[in-house]
């Protein structure tokens, strides 16, 4: 369980990171918290020729809360995001993510890009209709910081060496789209909504050469509550099935809008809008079996060594009802 050979890059700033990623293209992989990538490397399930370590890019370790929502930079660790309690649903989800030592290293954006269909954070992004900001530069510049995995620098070029384009190292902060991460001039940026971002199990819309610099989780409106319920085999494990819910009440405290995102029951988080099934009723008089049925209808879980498809299908309905009721309670509080 040792990784196959790869070239290690330790860029000192974002511009250098983007150039390195552009240069290595499809052969590169970004190392952030490493909580999934490193085991995959060690088990030789992944064999990228280049590893681009973004851990020196302190500018990415940011969380910003605005009235529009919470934007999380690519180097913000789960534990930091949880501590600042920026977004209620994010906080609820992070309590279910693994264990403290993993949360201290793992990053929110890394988890999104990893796109595990049983992970909590993609579901949060999906149910909130959030987005991921992907940044890249064109061209095929030469990476300036090639370090072998044994720590020996390969080409003797000083770390953070001269930039080809002569752009100021610290870059110029961009302020478009609520971005919290300052991007160098000339950086190409696209904001991909969650529904387009998750393309399959462990597959996202991020293209070779792109770095997910931040993710945006839209704020909740008034009289809106959230909840995350899941069943995992052990504390902190990936869920057998899980549901996060967002419920908005109208002024009479009837359910105005209700959405869930389900994990572990499809190739990507399955978002189901059950507003219609809730029929603008108060939570107590909603036809919950019908809600559960509507959710089950949209999911197609697979079986594995931990649970059968039938059980997962059963669970997702149970959890949807529990999460929606809890979210409705919270919205009313």
């Amino acid at each position: 369980m040792k990784p196959p050979p790869f070239e290690y890059h330790g860029p000192r700033d974002l511009g250098e990171a983007l150039e390195t990623l552009a240069a290595v293209g499809a052969h590169g992989k970004v190392l952030a918290g490493g909580q999934s990538l490193i085991p995959m490397l060690n088990m030789r399930l992944a064999a990228p020729a280049h590893l681009v370590d973004i851990n020196r890019l302190a500018a990415l370790a940011v969380v910003r809360e605005t009235p529009a929502g919470v934007t999380v930079g690519a180097l913000a660790r789960h534990s930091e995001v949880a501590r600042c309690g920026a977004h209620p649903l994010l906080a609820q989800a992070l309590r279910l993510v693994a264990h403290p030592v993993i949360r201290n290293r793992g990053t929110v954006v890394g988890s999104l890009v990893h796109a595990d269909p049983a992970a909590e954070l993609p579901a949060v992004l999906a149910v909130l209709d959030g987005s991921v900001r992907l940044a890249s530069v064109g061209g095929d510049g030469v990476p300036t910081d090639s370090v072998r995995r044994d720590g020996v620098q390969k080409d003797g070029v000083p770390r953070g060496g001269v930039r080809r384009d002569g752009v100021q190292r610290d870059g110029v902060p961009r302020d478009g789209g609520g971005g919290v991460v300052a991007l160098p001039a000339g950086t190409a940026v696209r904001d991909v909504p969650a529904r387009e971002f998750f393309t399959g199990p462990m597959e996202s819309a991020a293209r070779p050469g792109e770095l997910a610099v931040s993710a945006h989780f839209p704020a909740l409106g008034a009289r809106t509550g959230t909840a995350f319920r899941e069943v995992a085999r052990r504390h902190g494990d990936y869920a057998l099935a899980g549901v996060c819910a967002v419920v908005r009440l109208d002024e009479d405290l009837h359910i105005d809008a209700a959405r869930v995102a389900c994990i572990g029951v499809g190739p990507v988080p399955v978002v189901v809008d059950v507003s219609g099934v809730c029929e603008r009723r108060p939570a107590v008089s909603v036809d919950w079996p019908a809600v559960a049925a509507a959710v089950r209808e949209r999911t197609d879980p697979e079986g594995d060594v931990h649970a059968s498809p039938v059980y997962r299908l059963h669970l997702v309905g149970v959890l949807a009802e529990q999460a929606l009721r809890e979210a409705a309670r919270e919205a009313a509080a």
Binding site: P39, M43, R233, R234, H235, G236, D237, D304, V305, H306
Partner: peptide
């Protein structure tokens, strides 16, 4: 409640890691 060696019909161990072989944590 947790541990099993899940061999498939071809004799491949499906859960040869601590992620899928469920040794209980202190929490269990």
């Amino acid at each position: 409640l947790y541990e099993r060696m899940a061999y498939d019909a071809d004799g491949q161990l499906q859960n040869a890691s601590f992620m899928d072989f469920l040794m209980p944590y202190a929490t269990e």
